[in-house]
Nucleic acid binder design. Structure first.
Lengths: 184, 184
DNA sequence: CGATATAACGAACACTGTGTTTCATAGTGA
DNA sequence: TCACTATGAAACACAGTGTTCGTTATATCG
């Protein structure tokens, strides 16, 4: 029932090779030829599994479990996802730096933004916000602030701990959010 | 004293061709060959003026005057740059969409972020903030929120007017900022 | 274990795009 | 007018992509 062992092996080798190469040269500089050399895998084999370089990148996303965090939204607490996510990111530092970092692929960041936008939107609605154009703009601002912090850490522009990042995020954003929610 | 007329002509043709092509196909899909075909310019001529595709992109930045806005910081008013910048962006819609949009080049966004970060930082210091790691994180949040709105508009995800964007930005961010500035 | 399916290999291929070179031509500024 | 130099055209080596095909290796299942 489970996949052929050779298939799993090949896919894993290719994914690992890409991550290693991104950390060395940056995503853009990595070629398919690089990947198959590093993975020690035939060219035709690569294209039997992936059609593009980017597909390998996105296939890695499924293993970044922290992007699908428990929606354990404490009822009263806004943005409960924040601290756990910063912590998960710190744990998987190597992988995250490769995928999200300065040299990582833009597509991954775009996906991450979408996922977080959904979380934020859910939180705001749960906290009494009413679906509207203004709420969408608020979501954009909150997500922007969060992703900004994430990027700053990933790119080594700050050495703050997850707790500090979480605190900075809440301090910057919560007052405005609460003010808006309390009188729409 | 002034440059050779042929040089000006060639550079202008190339820049215009790139903008037009980005709007049609997206930055990544545009090749140097595309550009010189569209600009009707010899291959060697292109490389006599620019070494990379990206250089053409950045050469366009100098003409985006709104990125160097008047630092007309009303003393008491935080983020005075916000509304004027949204307005300028709206005016230069075509160029901005090409350079900053979903299909525009990442480098331009990175530069824009830097510029805005400096503005924000200056504003916060002028408003009584003290230089610190915490302030840097706050700057990151504020810039993230602003760029988020800018990107949302550029990508057509919102039809809000400059005034509305400015209002959303301030509403989301100002309360938190003021709270932090008032008791560090 | 053995038979069958199928994954992987490796080499070759056409194709697209890059960046360089060379040289004749045409436009420019003094 | 005249010296200067930007341009255009063509050809080039090079690197990377994505496909094809015959052979070999190795899972999986009976």
């Amino acid at each position: 029932m489970s996949e052929d062992r050779r298939v799993r092996r090949t896919r894993r080798l290719i994914q690992e090779a890409l991550v290693a190469l991104i950390l060395e040269k940056g995503y853009d500089a990595v070629t398919v030829t690089d990947i198959i050399d590093r993975a020690d895998v035939g060219r035709s084999t690569f294209y039997a599994h992936f059609t593009h370089k980017q597909e390998v990148l996105l296939s890695n996303l499924d293993e970044m479990a922290f992007l699908h965090p428990t929606p354990a939204t404490d009822a009263g607490r806004l943005f409960a996802f924040s601290l756990p996510m910063f912590e998960h990111v710190q744990e998987q530092e190597r992988l995250v730096r490769a995928l999200l970092g300065r040299h990582g692929g833009g597509p991954v960041i775009a996906r991450g933004e979408q996922m977080i936008a959904e979380l934020v939107r859910g939180d705001l609605l749960a906290a009494g916000g009413r679906s509207s154009a203004a709420l969408d703009l608020l979501v954009v601002c909150v997500v922007g602030a969060f992703m900004g912090l994430l990027r700053a850490w990933v790119n080594g522009e700050t050495t703050a701990t997850p707790t500090e990042l979480d605190a900075a995020f809440r301090a910057a954003v919560e007052p405005g959010v609460r003010a808006i929610l309390n009188r729409p």
